[in-house]
Design a binder for these strands. Structure first.
Length: 271
DNA sequence: TTCCAGGCGTATC
DNA sequence: GATACGCATGGA
């Protein structure tokens, strides 16, 4: 990793990273584009303003942070220990994935907090991205940050009406109860074989295969988790009727994110 | 107005 | 196990 500290800013060289690709591809809901070259958002309740200061040389600026916070939080959150260039080379054995990686080569899988990812994707079901962001915005405004399951312990379906999250409120209440009681331990679930982890998460009312896989991929960095939503169903039918290629093994979820972004922006392209 | 959105629970076969 | 349908809300 190649970075330098100047005053309160960190400057990072990272060729396999685009702000739009990573923060606006439907994996996280608390990042806002604040300019042509910048985003603002959070990891848990640590804020960040990040911008690209040199497009040709791939230099990013982390504003008003410290080397310690950069190394302890942002390095992990942005998955900087993973070589996405190497992953893209591996995926590009497959023709479709080669195109998808070329189209949005700056995607990285964020290592989000497990509870935030799980609850966010409970809210996401049968919903659109602007409205998901609206609901999560009301939640974080109400609590002055993203609330832990402990902070939500006394909420009920009725008391969460201010979220205007519809039928999803009762699912959040059930997730809070199962986690706070110890009936479900996210860290433990994260370490299980994929199908067992999925089954464990699906014990929550309102968590089915898709939400479970999203929580595993985005909240527990299980890169083998493969969420299948309406878009991925179309992608699989169109490009992989006989299953995924071997070159994605172990990183199905990463490949999924390139394909998701690609097909969503090429909806009627017939390939 | 009607349709749809990063699905899931329930009923029914 | 597969399939059909309702579900809260709000933007297009």
């Amino acid at each position: 990793m190649d970075y330098s500290v100047r005053g309160n800013d960190i400057f990072l060289y990272q060729p396999d990273f685009e702000l739009d690709d990573t923060f606006d591809c439907g994996q996280a809901f608390r990042w806002t584009k604040t300019g042509e070259d910048s985003y603002e958002g959070f990891y848990l309740n640590t804020p960040l303003r990040i911008s690209i200061v040199d497009r040709r040389d791939r230099i990013f600026r982390f504003e008003n942070t410290s080397e310690q916070v950069f190394l302890e939080q942002w390095y992990n959150y942005l998955d900087l220990s993973t070589d996405y260039g190497e992953l893209k080379r591996r995926f590009s054995e497959d023709e479709t994935l080669a195109r998808a990686c070329k189209y949005a080569g700056g995607i990285r899988i964020l290592r989000q907090d497990s509870w935030e990812a799980l609850s966010s994707f409970i809210i996401s079901q049968n919903n659109n991205i602007p409205r998901i962001k609206g609901i999560i915005g009301r939640l974080t405004e109400h609590y002055g940050g993203y609330p832990s399951s402990q902070q939500l312990a006394d909420e009920t379906e009725e008391s969460l009406a201010f979220l205007r999250s519809g039928f999803r409120a009762k699912y959040l209440v059930d997730a809070v109860a199962k986690i706070n009681s110890g009936e479900l331990d996210l860290a433990e679930a994260a370490s299980l074989p994929l199908e067992e982890a999925e089954k464990r998460l699906m014990s929550i009312k309102g968590v089915g295969p898709k939400v479970a896989m999203c929580a595993l991929l985005f909240g527990m960095h299980r890169t083998d988790a493969f969420p299948i939503d309406v878009w991925m169903k179309r992608a699989l039918e169109r490009w992989y009727p006989n299953g995924l290629p071997d070159c994605v093994k172990g990183y199905e979820g990463v490949a999924q994110q390139y394909l998701f972004h690609y097909i969503r922006n090429h909806p009627q392209e017939d390939m």
